[in-house]
Amino acid sequence: MTTTIDGNAAAREAILGRVRRALGRRGEGPAAAERAQAYVAAHGHGPRPTLPEDLAQAFVERATLMESTVERLGSLAEVPRAVAHYLDALRLPDAIAGQKSHAGVCWPQFADLDWPGAGLAIEARPTHGHDRLGITGALCGIAETGTLVVVSSPPTPTATTLLPDTHVAVLSAREIVPGMEEAFARVRALGPVVPRAIHLISGPSRTGDIEQTIVLGAHGPYRVHILLLP
C-alpha cells in the first residue's frame, strides 16, 4: 500500500518515528526543538572571504568573471540610451540576429523613462514568453560573486529576468552588499514571510552538459547586461 495526500499522516509519523529511534530518542522531546529555535535566532555566519573596501568595484569584477557585462551610468535618465547603444553594439551570428530587437518589456518602476526617445519600444508589463528584451531592477547586488538578487512581488515579475534573450538589470551601487548573508538579511527585512521567489542570478544561463563545453543561453537569457547607477 502506498500513501495518499489525505492519508499522509501515517507516513509522516512512521518516518519521524524512525528518525527518532535512529537518534536514540523517546518521543518528541522539547530539548531538540529548543536547540533548533535558539540556533535559528542567532543567525550565525560561517567563515567569510575578505573583500576589498570598494564593494562596487569588486561587484563589477566578479560579475564580469561570471560573463555579465557592466556599464556605469551617471543617472537613471541615461538608461534608455545606454540600452539602445548596447543592443546596437551586439555582434551576433545570423542564426540569432533577431535578438537585437529594440522591443521588449520592463518593470513598472521604469515605465516613465524616455524609451521612444532612444528608439526603443518598451512596454511596462510582465513577459508572455516571447519578448526579446527584459529590463528589470534588483533588490541588491552581491559583491563576493557579482550576483543580482531579484525577489518576486507584483511590481517585480521575475520572469522578466528569465524568458527574454537579453536581460538588462538596473542596479544602484549603494545597493551592493558584501555577501549572500547580507542579501538574505535584506530579504528577511521585507516582511514576516519571505517572498515566493528569491533569485540569485550570476551571469547568463549556460550549460556544460555536452563534453563539458560551456555554451551560453541554455534556457534563460543569452546575455545579462548590468547598468550600474551611483
Partner: peptide, 12 residues
C-alpha cells in the same frame, strides 16, 4: 565561484 542560478522558493 557560484552557480548561475540559485533560487530560494517559498510557498505559493
Amino acid at each position: 565561484s557560484i552557480s548561475n542560478y540559485v533560487d530560494v522558493l517559498t510557498g505559493v
